[in-house]
Amino acid sequence: MENQNTKIVVNGLKVVLGKKTILENIHFDVKDGEFLSILGPSGCGKTTILRCLIGLLNPTGGTIVKDGTDITKLGPSKRGMGIVFQNYALFENMSVLKNVEYALRLDKSRKAESRKIAMEMLQVVGLADHAKKRPSRLSGGQQQRVAIARTLALNPDVILFDEPMSALDVDTRMILRQELKDLQKKFGTTMIYITHDQEEAFAMSDRIMVMDNGVIHQIDTPENIIKNPADDYVRRFVVHNLQLKIDSLSRFSTANAKGDDSAQ
């Protein structure tokens, strides 16, 4: 990780909505090609960070620098980033192919090859056979893949994920996790991934940023967070909760092993 260039630097980010301070003095950076998870409970400010990064929300203070350029005041479409939402946000009146193709057709430089790119992206996410269907006829996991293909089609170098798997069942999540990692490897895209699921964050991330109440408690690799939790909150919310899951799984595997023994 040390050799990688810095992709994004967030410096002193502050967001005040109405009279409420949501974020204050947020500093962090993201390396090129890194998978960074932002982990925290609901309402901790993680989505607010994401909305500032993509440009859907103007921060009250601070700067966001990408590839050495200050992008704090740039429009969302000019930042070279894409976003995938929890609720897919697909265009229900269009076919799967049109969903992926629509933004490309509006871009003069890519209009001519829009159909080709869209089909390629659908192939990448394994949905080429479903190109003509309406999104409502696909499963949740498939719909999320369409949303990912739509984002990938514009070739962003950073993709933000806002709890993209919260609405999916466990099996689909497992499969999609692996697919996301594969995509990252294939395209070399930097990914910033929001989740409240410790296991998900630990399974996928190069680094994890643990947040609560608008404050960053720790940013580090999964191993370091387990070994050296920065404070009590990290110990409780991350390490302890994760330990509980591991314990219950190990009990299950012990029981399973005993079952196997007695069967023999």
């Binding site: 479409s77 946000a89 009146n93 629509y102 933004a103 509006l106």
Partner: peptide, 23 residues
């Protein structure tokens, strides 16, 4: 209707009037 459509549009460079008319 999905609340994030305009947000997605903004990131994909699809203007609000286009989202309104075409979606």
């Amino acid at each position: 209707i999905n609340k994030n459509l305009e947000d997605v549009g903004a990131t994909l460079n699809i203007s609000r009037p286009r989202i309104l008319l075409n979606v």
